[in-house]
Design a protein around this nucleic acid. Structure first.
Lengths: 176, 176
DNA sequence: ATGCGCTAGTCGGATGTCCAACTATCGGAT
DNA sequence: ATCCGATAGTTGGACATCCGACTAGCGCAT
């Protein structure tokens, strides 16, 4: 990590865009670049906290999903849908969670195609401890206020909806 | 990609957080999870456009950095600082850009430690073409308005500043 | 009841990111 | 003039993500 730059690389890029591609192009480009950069910053903050627990954020998310499930276990495919990642990613996440003993693979009682990931007592312990620490640093969102955090969530929600992330329950609309 | 969920996994998680960890913890958690998910969505949209050009977004960013540099070439370390990624990431980005002929490595005229990455004519061509296509899809920010995109940029700016991403020029403040 | 299409999960490969360690070089200090 | 710390880049390994391809098992339809 070199010294901080004396200027904002994103503002600089926005200037180039306005000059060469027209003003309307700058806002989307700058927003995306900001998103990429802040993603990286926040992820680094989270991983710093999680590393001592033998976790990274993606595995933490998977673990919490099991933690809050009714029975403490879910089919890998279900996890894939909930975490919104490719099935092969879940395979590798569960592989690593198994290695650290936070999760075990168990066969599905009736469907032999299906594998269940089950959280262990150690997994529950570390899930609680790690969550406490992440909450203590506000999930790396410093210096955002809760209101600002909500602005981020709500603004980005439209993008998630557009990507068909989830289909909101039709609100009181008659079918048809 | 399974069918869209019938509910929002982030709202669901926020509910769990409010219940188990107290209301103040939900906003940061939800914002971070949204950030992660939208990062993934936008990246997929960008890569879809870039793939036919033998590029992904990180290499596109590196290429554009060279494209807008005065001489069309920069030391890899400089690129690392500007792109805000680890030096080893630049090594691998430039490796791949070289393979597709968009960039060449050239020795620094006076410092033999330093390697310069230089954009090729093919690199310039693809940079312009790809940028046109990315601008055409508003950098994958659909359905955000330019104003909403600016809200994202400005809200996230405080996080970047907090992380010492760059040190804004002291504005008219006398030294000391 | 048999067969074929769909579903669940894994494997191998590509990309990108970080960290730790290493090589080569530069440049100031003694 | 030499030595030694700092700098530039690469290499190797871990993690995570996607895609394409593959195996195994389920189940409806004929």
């Amino acid at each position: 990590m070199p010294d901080p730059l004396a200027f904002d690389p994103i503002d600089e890029a926005a200037r180039q865009w306005r000059e060469h591609w027209g003003a309307p192009t700058a806002s989307p480009m700058a927003a995306v670049t900001s998103l990429m950069r802040v993603h990286q910053i926040v992820l680094a903050r989270l991983d710093e906290v999680l590393r001592p627990h033998d976790l990274r954020f993606p595995r933490y998310e998977a673990l919490m999903l099991l933690y809050y499930s009714r029975t403490g276990s879910l089919p890998l495919g279900k996890m894939s849908g909930r975490l919104q990642v490719h099935p092969t990613s879940v395979t590798s996440l569960v592989d690593r969670l198994e290695k650290t003993g936070y999760v075990t693979r168990t066969p599905h009682p009736t469907d032999r195609r299906t594998t269940l990931a089950t959280i262990t007592p150690e997994g529950r312990t570390v899930a609680e401890r790690a969550t406490g620490e992440l909450n203590a640093i506000a999930f790396g969102t410093r210096p955002l206020t809760p209101a600002q955090a909500d602005v981020v969530t709500e603004t980005l929600r439209t993008v998630r909806l557009d990507a068909l992330d989830y289909a909101p329950a039709t609100e009181q609309l008659p079918p048809g």
